[in-house]
Amino acid sequence: APHATGLGFSEVACDSPDAEQAALTAVDYLNQHLQRGFKHTLNQVDKVKVWPRRPFGEVYELELDTLETTCHVLDPTPLANCSVRQLVDHAVEGDCDFHVLKQDGQFTVMHAQCHSNPDSAEDVQKVCPTCALLASFNDSRVVNTVNAALNAFNERNNGTYFKMVEISRAQNTPPPVSTFVEFVVAATDCTVQGAADPTKCNLLAEKQYGFCKASLVRRLEDEELSVTCKVFQKQPQPASVDAAGPAPAVDQAAPPAPPANPPASLL
């Protein structure tokens, strides 16, 4: 039974089935509304308060800790199949406050606010003194690696010209000096041969994104570039996109269906 406080709300165990269901609904909501970066997964329910709601239902006020996964938010892979980014990779963690309404057995997010930060350099170096830390996206080595990787991908991909959408993460390692990047590309209305001026190439109305990982290893006078991209199925443009933040509510009973076909991979 809820633990009455006399303060208007009740306290329930953070690991109670209802708190867990509310937290999972909240994390689904978070991932559906993230517009860049990687999907997050629930690590811990920090606090739960349950407020009665008139005329019906109750509101779960949750504080959640989340961890970054290796799946980009545009990747249709279900969250359950996404690996958690490990501390040695300099992962990002999230702190979130949610209000989730429970009514008629259904959970609906009413309010969401999250902050995310990379783990501290000290924490990473405590477990791995030689591991690479995250690099700034405007670092010249990062920008060079991303541009070289995108060019290489387009040269091998003899058809549609893919444009840069977002640099998602980047790391520079000590000698042999290497740069590792992860970035998002999208198909345009240009062909590779016809993309003399990429600024004139427009994204397709039916968006087709790809997620790429690349590395540039530098040895004396030699550079070795490697790039792998996974191109996802085309995504119909939603009727309205709330660029300012999360919509006020989402019907968790009807999550968007994943694509019927697995994502195509291009090397």
Binding site: C14, E20, T41, L42, D46, D65
Partner: peptide, 27 residues
């Protein structure tokens, strides 16, 4: 914050309600 520990006269150790379990690793 004042929290009632349970029904008056209830015996036994207090149950820790929160935070919940760590699912992956502690930050």
């Amino acid at each position: 914050k004042v929290v009632q520990s349970g029904p008056a006269g209830a015996a036994g150790p207090a149950v820790r309600l929160c935070p919940g379990r760590v699912r992956h690793f502690r930050i």
